[in-house]
Nucleic acid binder design. Structure first.
Lengths: 338, 338
DNA sequence: GAGTAAATTGACAGCGCTGTCAATTCCATG
DNA sequence: CATGGAATTGACAGCGCTGTCAATTTACTC
């Protein structure tokens, strides 16, 4: 495999191995000319540093961890993709770890940390708000970045996307189409996104000139089935809503099913907006208008912070832009003009 | 972190570090008494070998790779879970790599292999049948195990589950419920599982005493939408099928939608069987009767083979049992007895 | 009990790289 | 041109572990 070592590069460039090391690690105090010579040798020989040797000799492990306790494969994969892309660029590796927040998360973290030496850790919801996990990390002095935390935001660098603003935009989108009888299918109380999206939506209605109190709210739990049930209940009313904002795509898919069963067409009779831009959004017909949270990009940013940030411990907040994805499930209010 | 080194263990057990090394690596020629002494010291000190040092000194990297080119997050996660569990037990790590089979897979593999030193690789469909990838691996002499390959099965150890037998069982299940007008929604031609499941199903009907040629086959492509379309087409016929076998759960979910739109109840009017036991199977109502391919277990077995198998290169086939999951979407043929 | 083969154990040299610290070179001044 | 301090560079000692090979102990044989 990697037959070429730092020694080969050093002799090819006529410098000491330490200088090659400096170039590899972007350390200061290398003259541009020398640096160029070394880089040329590296390229010519196809040299790739040996990670094992680097981490044995140095303090870094070149591995960052991503801890999950999320049942949503789509979300996990997105985080992995993003984090992995960032890692790959810097020669790092991503270690995936699963945690069950329900049972003694602290012990699980400790066990994990005892085995794997991690240069940093990415935490996604709901672990991102698990104090025991943060404590364990702090105890071992391992840097971490959290994705979409709801609590203790000052405790670490944090990556967010503005769910509330996105929901508000969804509200205005529906409002502008003329919808006035609007319902929200909220997420479970435990999930911080639920409140953010609901409040954001209400705020959007209000800022568009409507009355947020008029917005009908039905509870769901982020599952297809709860969306179906909510939809069925809503459509059973004589003056059913003409637009529904489901707090996630799975529930929106449930609404599709409810609409079909109730003889309602989307978007002719009802408009539907989801959230997450999960795969189901493109599988249903018509394709679902939804909001995309840049999960992969957020994870990539987190990884970058961990990889580069060694030292700049200043807790900081990074916000990445959400994006409304307009597809075919929203349209003008049916009686517009009647 | 791991302050305890092999030296500490060696002096605690009053042996040389080499003997400790032997115990750690389960090498032969250590007297039971000595081994026990060393193990006690290891436990007492909480010693965890330093992976970087091990791989620098030895030939192993303690990393096995899993290569994906599969759009299905649920499947990927299952493979990861299984492989990771097996890795963890042996102190290995799992490196996840994505590949785009469409564009120069060989080059991608080579790039990947240049960077990461892998002790073995797990290949899942469709990469499992990509000759260029296998060639690249062979060239680097890296052992690999393939999951559910359709071709060149003798080329490496192989892990399979009998899709055809499972589909046959699904057929008999439906047959035994009295169904005689049965349809299959097949998968895309390119996917080897498609043929296996279709042929298996036909065989099951034949072996139950039916006529396989009577089975109506509609083409799908494993997406929800194609299942919906197929279902709609099927239900539009005057004598529509009373039972449908969808080659995967996403298409089965599409059938649910089609049934709702056609005013048909499941399982009263139509029985539906899916395949994969994906999350959607439990999200829909009634829960979907389906077949579970033990993906995680298969991946775990593959990882184990790679971790232990160093040397036993004898290509071998390991078959793991599928399982039919009976849920609420299947029932007696509606006119049974009319 | 000597003699020999086999089993067990340890000494030692690195694996490829980084941290430390000393040596060398460079540069601006005086 | 000498001088001092900063910028560059390199020599060297490991990081913690495994492979090699020689030394030691044990197990058997006659």
């Amino acid at each position: 495999m990697s037959r070429v070592t730092i020694n080969d590069v050093a002799s090819a460039a006529a410098v000491s191995i330490k200088t090659v090391s400096r170039v590899i690690n972007r350390e200061p105090n290398v003259r541009p000319a020398v640096q160029a010579r070394v880089e040329a040798a590296i390229r010519k020989l196809g040299y790739v540093p040996n990670t094992a040797a680097r981490s044995l000799a140095g303090a870094r492990s070149f591995v960052i961890g991503a801890i999950f306790d999320n049942p949503n494969p789509h979300y996990i994969i997105a985080v992995q993709r993003g984090a992995m892309a960032a890692c790959r660029q810097s020669g790092y590796h991503l270690a995936i770890e699963e945690l069950d927040t329900a049972k003694n998360a602290a012990a699980q973290m400790r066990a994990m940390l005892a085995t794997a030496r991690l240069d940093g850790v990415i935490l996604s919801p709901p672990v991102t708000d698990c104090a025991a996990v943060l404590d364990a990390l702090d105890a071992k002095n391992i840097p971490y970045v959290r994705l979409m935390p709801a609590t203790a935001k000052g405790r670490s660098p944090v990556i967010i996307s503005d769910d509330a603003a996105a929901a508000a935009e969804a509200a205005r989108h529906l409002w502008d189409f003329g919808h006035r009888r609007i319902a929200v299918i909220a997420g479970p109380a435990g999930h911080s996104a639920s409140a953010l999206r609901l409040e954001g939506f209400r705020h959007g209605i209000a800022s568009a000139g409507g009355d947020a109190r008029q917005v009908r709210v039905v509870k769901g739990d982020f599952t297809f089935r709860s969306g179906l049930a909510a939809g069925l209940a809503l459509f059973a009313e004589k003056k059913h809503p003409t637009a529904i904002f489901a707090s996630n795509d799975d529930m929106a898919a449930g609404v599709y099913s409810a609409a079909a069963q109730s003889g309602l067409r989307i978007p002719d009779d009802v408009s539907v907006v989801g959230y997450d831009d999960s795969p189901v959004a493109e599988l249903v017909w018509p394709p679902l208008t939804t909001v995309r949270q840049p999960v992969a990009e957020m994870a990539a940013e987190a990884a970058r912070l961990l990889i580069e940030g060694r030292g700049s411990d200043a807790p900081h907040t990074f916000e990445l832009p959400y994006k409304m994805i307009m597809r075919g499930s929203t349209g003008a209010e049916p009686c517009m003009g009647c």
